[in-house]
Design a protein around this nucleic acid. Structure first.
Length: 320
DNA sequence: AAGAACATCAACCGCTCCAAA
DNA sequence: CTTTGGAGCGGTTGATGTTCT
């Protein structure tokens, strides 16, 4: 049913010649590919339609980028693979101008090996070395981030400087000026807030490993000397820590309720609009206040306030 | 210098999906 | 509803290039 015969008399196989390529390109440029099955005859090629389609989609198409994969592309592949597995065509839709075949080859010949070398199982994307919860935690976060970003490409909205802020001025993920959408907040908001705060916690802890000792459940770094963290008191810190644990545990407990939930809610991490709306809905205006424009201490206080509010918020607590 | 071993990637194969008949 | 056939997907192969011994 629907299967092409594996052998057809008079049909050429193997590498394509320049002449064949030229014929195929010329025909498609003039007529479009139409029915692939009928194409070879019309184009004067001794190939099966399937071979023509493959040659075109994987090699001859004008909108194909060839050559070395960038670091960003590599990261995207790894993270999407963690989320999607070997669904190369889906992964390819997130990497403009790359084909599924190319990505698949690159994964099999480069990335899989590299992950294995790093002690990461290329199938599960988890550390092989006696459980590193932070790794899967970060993978999870990065995965969700990518998925959200990928969807933003198709669903333009205002992108904020939020991501830049939490990354201390590193390059934005997207340089595209996105539009403000009408309010269609993802639901449930609890997950939004949860995810957003988790992102913040992740960032801080990975950026300042010294802080990790206060949050052993998130980042179990051993033998780290205590650190006085700017002007924050220990009380502030432990207060955050306590809530971070709640956030993390909460996230762990809901993560299996379906990727849809997880993925649906992550846009707001990049978008002040979503973030503010989500927080406002959960906590009320006074808790969220004005947007802030950076400065690590300011940021710290901002999140400290919000986390404290979250900790006392009954609707949020009910998530758990 | 030469052969072996390994890496790369274009292309093929067999399968599923899905729309049309 | 079943059958058919085109399109597309993912796994795999094998020719070619590169590195190692």
């Amino acid at each position: 049913m629907g299967r092409s015969p594996s052998f057809v008399k008079g049909v050429k196989k193997g590498p394509w010649t320049i002449e064949e390529d030229q014929k195929l390109v010329a025909y498609i440029e003039q007529n479009g590919h139409g029915s692939w099955r009928a194409l070879p005859l019309k184009a004067g090629l001794q190939r099966c339609g399937k071979s023509c389609r493959l040659r075109w989609t994987n090699y001859l198409r004008p909108d194909i980028k060839r050559g070395k994969f960038s670091l960003q592309e590599e990261q995207t592949i790894i993270q999407l693979h963690a989320l999607l597995g070997n669904r190369w065509s889906t992964i390819a839709t997130h990497l403009p101008k790359r084909t599924d075949n190319e990505i698949k080859n690159y994964w099999n010949t480069h990335l899989k090996k590299r992950l294995t070398k790093m002690g990461i199982d290329p199938v599960t994307h988890r550390s092989r070395t006696a459980g590193n919860p932070n790794l899967s935690h970060m993978t999870q976060w990065e995965t969700a981030r990518l998925e959200a970003e990928a969807r933003l490409v198709h669903e333009p909205r205002r992108v904020s400087n939020f991501y830049q802020r939490i990354h201390h001025g590193s390059l934005p993920i997207s340089n595209k000026p996105l539009l403000v959408s009408s309010l269609s907040l993802p639901q449930p908001l609890h997950f939004d807030v949860l995810k957003a705060c988790q992102g913040i916690s992740s960032y801080r802890l990975s950026d300042l490993p010294e802080l990790a000792q206060f949050v052993p459940i998130v980042n179990p770094v051993e033998n780290v000397e205590p650190l006085s963290f700017h002007d924050m008191t220990m009380e502030d810190l432990t207060s955050n820590v306590k809530i971070s644990e709640v956030l993390f545990n909460g996230l762990e407990s809901v993560k299996d309720e379906g990727n849809q939930n997880m993925l649906q809610v992550t846009n707001m991490v990049y978008e002040d609009g979503y973030m503010t709306d989500a927080l406002t809905n959960c906590l009320g205006n006074d808790a969220v206040g004005e947007n802030h424009n950076g400065g690590f201490e300011e940021e710290t206080n901002y999140w400290s306030n919000i986390l404290n509010k979250l900790g006392n918020n009954s609707s949020f607590s009910s998530v758990f």
